[in-house]
Simulated scan of single mutants.
Amino acid sequence: MTQIQVVTGAQINEFLDALAVLRIAIFRDFPYLYEGTLEYEKSYLSTYANSKDAIVVLVLDNGKVVGASTGLPLSEETIEFKQPFIDAGYNVDEIFYCAESVLLSAYRGSGLGKRFFEEREAYAKQLEGITHVCFCAVVREEQHLLKPNDYKSLEPFWMSQGYSKTKLTCEYVWRDIDKTVDSAKTMQFWMKSL
């Protein structure tokens, strides 16, 4: 039986290993095609464990982490993610960043994606000064060689949750599963007022 558990701040440390393994597994799929390492993942996730205002929404099945959704104030993110907003005149102290949602395929289609957004937005509303939420997604060419024939874009789902695609983008670097070197990817930001 699945259950939702919300953890914040130092509580996140308990789940870092499980989150790292889950992120590597899910992000190998299109469109991310991410060749991840546990070492990098633990370093990346430590940002959340070290933030008093970070949140992780966990999906547990008999105690095993099968899904997770993360977020923290944009002001605590890396400069790659903050700079486009700064350049566009936004106050990053007023924005909550919904970092990622990862869910094993067997658990998809049951409303958990919607729940991930609801939990993070409700949490963001409790933080002083937060007026907007955002996230970003990788931009891949329509005819990408590794795009599955049955791939369905999440854009209609994101719009149904009240998010709009912005003109803001950033570059983020990782290694694709079919490459031998890291390369920069364009990340498109989506945003919503609270």
Rank of each mutant, 00 (worst) to 15 (best):
L103I: 10
D17P: 05
L168V: 07
R115D: 08
R28P: 04
M191T: 02
D93N: 15
G113K: 03
F117M: 05
E141P: 15
L154S: 15
Y172R: 01
W174N: 05
D182C: 03
Y40H: 12
A54L: 06
L33S: 13
K52Q: 11
Y172D: 04
N13T: 07
K42A: 01
A54P: 13
T2M: 11
K192H: 09
I86E: 15
C136F: 05
L146A: 11
K165Q: 15
I55D: 11
Q5G: 01
K52E: 14
E39Q: 14
K147I: 03
Y107D: 03
S69V: 03
K185V: 00
E76C: 01
V56K: 09
R120D: 13
A184H: 06
K185Y: 09
Y151C: 01
F135L: 04
V7I: 14
H132F: 09
I130M: 14
Y90A: 05
I177P: 08
V57H: 06
L127C: 02
S183L: 04
K125P: 08
E128Q: 14
M1T: 13
N149F: 08
A20T: 15
N62A: 11
K64H: 07
F81S: 07
L145C: 03
L58N: 08
Y32M: 02
F30T: 03
L74P: 04
Q143N: 15
G111A: 01
E128G: 08
G113N: 05
L72S: 12
L72H: 13
D176H: 09
R28W: 00
L74A: 10
F96V: 05
S183V: 03
K152T: 10
D182E: 15
V66I: 14
I12K: 04
G67R: 07
S193E: 15
M187G: 08
A49R: 08
A49L: 06
L145T: 14
C170R: 07
L154G: 12
L168C: 09
D182H: 13
V139F: 03
E155P: 02
L112H: 12
F96L: 04
G89V: 06
A49D: 10
P84C: 00
F116W: 10
Y48E: 02
E76Y: 07
E100I: 00
I130N: 10
H144S: 05
L112M: 06
G36A: 04
T131F: 05
T2C: 13
I4Y: 12
Y48A: 07
R23S: 12
R23Q: 14
I130Y: 03
N13P: 00
L60G: 08
L168R: 07
H132S: 11
Q126W: 04
V65H: 12
T186S: 09
Q161I: 02
A10Y: 14
L22W: 11
Q188Y: 03
W174P: 04
E35G: 02
G9R: 04
W190L: 00
S164A: 13
L127V: 03
L74K: 10
Y90N: 04
L60C: 10
Y107A: 00
L103S: 05
I86N: 09
I55E: 07
Y107W: 12
L146R: 08
C98A: 11
V66D: 04
